[in-house]
Computed example of a mutant assay.
Amino acid sequence: MTDCTGSNTPADQRDLWRTPPAIFFALDAEFCFQLDAAAALHNALCRKFITAAQNTLETPWADYLNVPGYVWMNPPYSDITPFVKKAAAESANRIGTVMLVPADTSVGWFWEAIQTASVVRFITAGRLAFINPVTGKPVSGNNKGSLLLIWKPYPRTHCEFTTVDRDTLMAYGNSRLARREAA
């Protein structure tokens, strides 16, 4: 997760927490991500990425990928709404987005997301341990679960609610990482 506003105050330190690699690699097997739309030079998960300086909220994502295609995004959790709006707008351009966010259905950005997203996938049976950007180690004590908001790169007919087991997702991602490192 990258702070796309360029702020780096202690209040938004959690905005800098990184996606657990196993989660990304498990989802990449399904979606074949072409772009990490909220990244920094040191933590980009795709070859093509957009940094805070490039401002993902203003940059046309089609400049970075083949359309139709998928974008990965772990937005700053301090202000998710503009990233939901951006993913919804880009879906009209045949760009799909998979966004990792807290599992909180009581907030305005969640209601806004389900108006345009194709899938809400709750990660069940445990919380994710995000990666501390300074130590590179997993951070325990995440106080919320996580979910994936998925905008598909073709016209939406409805919003489907599904689940995926955290440990199954992590095991699959870790097996992909192990094969990658062995190659």
Rank of each mutant, 00 (worst) to 15 (best):
L45D: 04
F33R: 00
W17L: 15
L35P: 03
A22I: 07
N8Q: 09
A39R: 03
P10A: 05
L41K: 13
A38P: 02
A40Y: 01
F25G: 02
R47Y: 04
A29F: 00
N43S: 15
H42S: 14
H42T: 15
Q13C: 13
D36M: 01
A26E: 07
F31T: 03
A22T: 15
Q13H: 06
F25Y: 14
D28E: 13
C32T: 01
P10Y: 12
T19W: 06
R18V: 12
A39K: 00
P21V: 11
N43D: 14
R47M: 13
F33C: 00
L41S: 14
A40R: 11
D12G: 12
F25L: 01
S7I: 12
T19P: 06
A11G: 09
R47G: 15
R14H: 09
Q34M: 03
L41H: 12
F25R: 11
A26H: 01
A44H: 14
S7A: 15
A39H: 01
A29P: 00
T2Q: 13
G6R: 03
D28W: 00
C4V: 13
A37G: 08
A37F: 04
T2F: 08
R14S: 06
N43Q: 15
P10F: 05
T5A: 00
P21A: 10
G6C: 08
H42Y: 10
T2L: 03
D36H: 07
R18M: 10
A29I: 02
A38I: 08
C46V: 09
C4D: 10
L45K: 10
Q34V: 05
F24V: 05
C32P: 02
C4T: 11
I23D: 04
R14L: 15
C4L: 04
F24T: 06
F25M: 01
L27A: 03
D36N: 03
D3W: 00
E30N: 11
F24Q: 05
A40H: 08
A38D: 02
I23S: 00
T19F: 09
D28Q: 04
C32L: 04
A44Q: 15
S7V: 12
D15T: 04
A40N: 10
A11P: 02
C4W: 02
T5C: 01
D12L: 06
I23P: 02
D12C: 12
A44K: 14
L27D: 03
H42E: 14
C46Y: 03
